[in-house]
Nucleic acid binder design. Structure first.
Length: 289
DNA sequence: AAGTTTCACAACCGCCGTGGC
DNA sequence: CGCCACGGCGGTTGTGAAACT
C-alpha cells in the first residue's frame, strides 16, 4: 500500500486514509507493542498518525497514543490501587469531579483510564450497594464521614504493622460505626504519627482540629485534615497539597458543627440502608483491595 | 462439570479545542 | 474565516477471567 506524502506545516508527514490502511482494532499484539515502543523510544512521542505509519502499525494515531500512554510508557504504574491512592482519588474526585486526567496528574504513574476504571468498578459499586447515586449528597457524605476515615485507619494499621508498632485491627473490630468513640484511633508510630479524630464539637469552629493547621472549610464539608506541622496552605489551596503517601503528624477528620456520633445514631444513617448494611459494606474486605 | 453472572481492565467512540493552512 | 488534521478527554463498550449457581 502506498503512502501519500504531503506537506503539513513546516514539516512533512505521511497522509493516508484509514480505509486505505486497513486499520486494525482490538487488543494489541506483542509485535505491535514492540514496534510502537521501539519507534517512540527512538523518535519520541507526538504526531501519532505519523508514528502509526512510520512504525509500520496498522493502527490509528489515536490508538497508538492510547496504547503508549496507558500501557507501554515506561513510567506507567501497574497493579492494585493502594489505600493511599484510593484515599487520594476519593478526595480529588470530590474536588474535580469526573476530570480523570486532572486527578491522574496527582497520582504519578497512574493513568486517567485506570482511575476512571477504578471509580466505575469500585466506587460506583459501593454506591449501588448503598442504593444511592454516586453523585448524591448521601453518597458523598458516606465517603467523607465513613469511607475516607476508614481508609485512613487502614493506612495507619498497615503502616503501624509494617513498622512493628501495635496495629488497630480493623478486620477484627466489632464496634459498629454508630458506636465509634469520638476519637477513633490514637496510636503512634516512629515515622507516621497519625491520629484520626471525629469532632464532637458543635459550633462554627472545630475544636480538635489544630488551630494552625491551615486546612480550610467550606460551608458544609467535613475534612480529613493534615497535621499542622505538615501543611502550609491557605484557604484557596485547600487540599492541593494533600498527599496520603507522606502522612505524618496528627490527621483529623472533622466538620464544623457536626456531631458525628449524633449524626450516625440519628436517622441520618437510614439513608444508607441502615447501619448494619453500612457496617457490613465497609467491613467488606473486597472493598479495600 | 457446565452454564451463567459479575468483575476488572483495555480499547474504542464521539466530542471538542487548538493550530496550521 | 472556514476547513482540516490532530490531540486530549470523558463516556462507553468489549472481552477474558474469576466467581457463583
Amino acid at each position: 500500500m502506498e503512502a501519500h506524502v504531503t506537506g503539513f506545516g513546516s514539516s512533512t508527514y505521511v497522509q493516508q486514509s484509514e480505509e486505505e490502511r486497513d486499520v486494525r482494532k482490538g487488543p494489541w499484539t506483542v509485535e505491535e507493542d514492540s514496534l510502537l515502543t521501539n519507534y517512540v523510544t527512538i523518535h519520541g512521542e507526538g504526531r501519532w498518525n505519523t508514528v502509526a505509519l512510520c512504525a509500520g502499525l496498522k493502527r490509528t494515531g489515536k490508538s497508538c497514543r492510547l496504547r503508549w500512554l496507558n500501557y507501554l510508557r515506561p513510567d506507567v504504574r501497574r497493579g492494585n490501587i493502594t489505600l493511599q491512592e484510593q484515599l487520594k482519588i476519593l478526595e480529588l474526585h470530590s474536588r474535580f469531579g469526573n476530570r480523570w486526567s486532572k486527578i491522574a496528574e496527582h497520582l504519578p504513574g497512574r493513568t486517567d483510564n485506570e482511575i476512571k476504571n477504578y471509580w466505575r468498578t469500585r466506587v460506583q459499586k459501593q454506591a449501588k450497594q448503598l442504593k444511592c447515586d454516586v453523585n448524591s449528597k448521601q453518597f458523598r457524605d458516606a465517603m467523607r464521614y465513613v469511607w475516607m476515615p476508614r481508609l485512613l485507619e487502614r493506612i495507619q494499621a498497615t503502616t503501624h504493622s509494617s513498622t512493628g508498632q501495635p496495629t488497630s485491627n480493623i478486620a477484627d473490630r466489632t464496634t459498629p460505626t454508630n458506636n465509634y468513640p469520638s476519637e477513633i484511633t490514637g496510636t503512634h508510630a516512629d515515622k507516621y504519627t497519625s491520629q484520626v479524630y471525629i469532632s464532637t464539637e458543635s459550633g462554627p469552629e472545630p475544636s480538635i482540629m489544630p488551630a494552625s493547621s491551615g486546612a480550610s472549610w467550606d460551608s458544609a464539608d467535613a475534612y480529613v485534615s493534615p497535621p499542622a506541622s505538615d501543611v502550609n496552605m491557605d484557604n484557596s489551596q485547600n487540599w492541593s497539597d494533600f498527599n496520603p503517601d507522606n502522612m505524618s503528624g496528627s490527621w483529623v477528620l472533622s466538620k464544623p458543627g457536626l456531631d458525628i456520633q449524633g449524626f450516625e445514631t440519628q436517622s441520618n444513617i437510614e439513608w444508607l440502608g441502615g447501619d448494619e448494611s453500612l457496617e457490613s459494606l465497609w467491613n467488606d474486605e473486597t472493598m479495600w483491595l
